[in-house]
Amino acid sequence: MQITLDKLKINQKGTIVAVKGQGVTRRRLFDMGVTPGALVTLIKLAPLGDPLEINIRNYELTLRKDEAKNVILEVEDN
């Protein structure tokens, strides 16, 4: 099943399939290792519900839900 990163549940894992969007935001995501094939785990949400904290390539990255919407993941059905 494919979902966008902002829909991931806490501690749920997914594999990146595609990164949409354009310009600075997309380039930044690539540079930080958010590229197809990478495994992502959602660690937590900020106290006010946004931004997100994810674990990718063995480090912690934070990004907003708006930016996370561009990242498409393959997750296991449950």
Binding site: T25, L29, L61, L63, R64, E67
Partner: peptide
């Protein structure tokens, strides 16, 4: 501005 930031240990 995009907010894509490392959270260092």
């Amino acid at each position: 501005p995009p907010f894509i930031m490392e959270l260092p240990a």
